[in-house]
Amino acid sequence: LASSTGCKHKILNVGPTEPWSVREKLCLASSVMRSGDQNWVSVSRAIKPFAEPGRPPDWFSQKHCASQYSELLEATEAPKSVLQCVHISVCRYKK
């Protein structure tokens, strides 16, 4: 993933083919906000309890988390710094 120097983000072609839920994406963004976009071990560990039912054990692997976050950045026109400043509390609540 690119740094905050204005470089384009590279989408990693790894990860599940089934789409992540909005809730999973919000939890991912929230965890990256807390841990940073270079600490995928911590991000992966933090969001595993919030997986939707039926997800495979490697759904939130480090590579899948990095890939999904890269896709989130590519899908938005907001700068990375704006995404990291958004405070998300949805991950505090389990269904």
Results as ranks from 00 to 15, higher is better:
51 A>N: 12
94 K>E: 09
9 H>S: 06
73 L>I: 11
43 V>K: 08
34 R>Y: 12
4 S>R: 12
40 W>I: 10
93 Y>G: 03
72 L>C: 07
50 F>H: 14
40 W>G: 07
36 G>H: 06
16 P>M: 02
26 L>P: 00
85 C>Q: 14
1 L>Y: 05
40 W>Y: 09
42 S>Q: 15
62 Q>G: 11
25 K>E: 09
68 Q>H: 04
5 T>W: 13
38 Q>D: 13
15 G>W: 01
59 W>R: 14
52 E>W: 11
87 H>D: 11
39 N>H: 12
19 P>I: 01
91 C>H: 07
51 A>F: 06
12 L>V: 01
45 R>W: 11
76 T>G: 05
32 V>D: 02
46 A>Y: 12
44 S>A: 15
58 D>V: 10
69 Y>R: 02
19 P>D: 03
24 E>R: 01
51 A>I: 08
9 H>E: 06
41 V>E: 15
64 H>T: 13
73 L>N: 04
35 S>E: 15
22 V>G: 01
22 V>I: 03
53 P>C: 11
7 C>L: 09
29 A>W: 00
66 A>T: 04
14 V>W: 03
16 P>Y: 07
59 W>N: 07
40 W>F: 09
46 A>S: 15
68 Q>W: 02
95 K>C: 08
1 L>S: 10
59 W>Q: 07
81 S>W: 06
44 S>Q: 14
